[in-house]
């Protein structure tokens, strides 16, 4: 296969119904975004799984690196005061 026939990769996100977020469903190759959308509809929504589709060129996604997990997420571990369970409230006080 020649170099120019390699179709770029798109990530597909589906909103299953109104009121819910788009969720990653998978990925596919397509010549352009329009074809990606058409193919995503054929592949991922054959059984009424969707009411809206996003396709995003995979190359445009910036992702955090797994090796940075520590510096990114560990600081949250020590900030337990951000959780409601951190606070003492008498059992007989209601609606709090």
């Amino acid at each position: 296969m020649t170099e120019k026939t390699v179709w770029p990769l798109f990530e597909v996100f589906i909103r299953s119904r109104q009121g819910l977020s788009h969720v990653h469903a998978g990925s596919l190759h397509a010549a352009d975004a329009k074809m990606a959308l058409e193919n995503a509809r054929d592949v991922f929504t054959r059984r009424g799984e969707g009411s809206s589709i996003w396709v995003v060129p995979s190359q445009t996604i910036t992702a955090s690196a797994p090796e940075n997990k520590g510096e990114l997420y560990d600081p949250a571990d020590s900030k337990i005061y951000r959780h409601p369970t951190f606070y003492d409230v008498p059992d007989d006080v209601e609606f709090i």
């Binding site: 296969m1 020649t2 120019k4 026939t5 179709w7 010549a31 352009d32 074809m35």
Partner: peptide, 16 residues
């Protein structure tokens, strides 16, 4: 299918 794949890429390039 080669020509179909090539044609789709050529068409996308033209549109762009």
């Amino acid at each position: 299918g080669v020509w179909v794949r090539e044609a789709a890429v050529a068409f996308a390039a033209k549109q762009r």
